[in-house]
């Protein structure tokens, strides 16, 4: 059974159709890439998948349940981890505080939040001194790692990342992709949104979005 299903979803911005009748299945342990040119609706689809927006028609099912009928806040804070394109970290907090805040928001019962947060940050390549640094004082790549650690902080089934390698150098890109691969290997469903064919080539499945005229699976 698929973890996340799209059933004929369509979406319009002010009567301008952006997505039309998209159906797709996402499973555990796989890494997916949604590719497409600018304006194809990649970020819109990510917003729908993460529960930040609702489709104009159609259904998104999480474990067979329509997410429209699940508390959106609970869905976002417990079942799905999102790594935004611009990271969306609280800039006046440290990396560690950002991760702990995410744990707090999820209301998950975690015994030693600080320890877990430090180990998560360590797993994405940030040591303790970097973890205790204000986010603004970290590089783009480090911020990306913090965003990934934050998305994983409450151990969600699905991790979605919008342009995860967009602003990173080649080495960092590789490291980040390795992190996502390891997450998929751990049984998580990883969905990446990218316009990069290189990123797409590293994924198990790709879903290409084209501007409203059509869509195809490669």
């Amino acid at each position: 059974m698929s973890l996340l299903s799209l059933k004929n979803i369509s979406f319009s911005y002010d009567k301008t159709p952006v997505l039309k009748e998209i159906s797709y299945e996402f499973e555990k342990g796989k890494m997916y890439c949604i590719i497409g040119k600018s304006g194809a609706g990649k970020t819109t689809l990510l917003s729908l998948l993460s529960g930040l927006a609702s489709p104009s028609s159609g259904e998104i099912l999480y474990n067979g349940k329509n997410i429209a009928k699940i508390d959106k806040y609970a869905f976002r804070s417990r079942y799905i981890g999102v790594v935004f394109q611009s990271f969306n970290l609280i800039t006046k907090y440290t990396a560690l505080e950002n991760v702990i805040l995410s744990m707090d928001v999820s209301s998950c019962k975690i015994k030693n939040k600080k320890q877990l947060a430090l180990s998560l940050l360590d797993s994405v390549g940030l040591d303790e001194s970097e973890a205790n640094r204000r986010v603004l004082k970290l590089s783009g790549g480090q911020q990306q790692r913090v965003a990934i650690a934050r998305a994983l902080s409450y151990n969600p089934d699905i991790v979605i990342a919008d342009e995860p390698t967009g602003n990173l150098d080649r080495d960092t890109q590789k490291e980040i992709m390795e992190i996502f691969r390891s997450l998929a290997n751990q049984g998580k469903c990883v969905i990446l949104v990218s316009h990069s064919s290189e990123v797409a080539s590293m994924c198990d499945e790709r879903y290409e979005l084209v501007k409203i005229s059509g869509k195809k699976v490669i």
Binding site: Y73, A74, R76, V82, N88, L89, I90, S102, V105, S106
Partner: peptide, 10 residues
Amino acid sequence: EVGVLTAMGM
């Protein structure tokens, strides 16, 4: 900040 917090599920 409000946007981030609510996007996180707060």
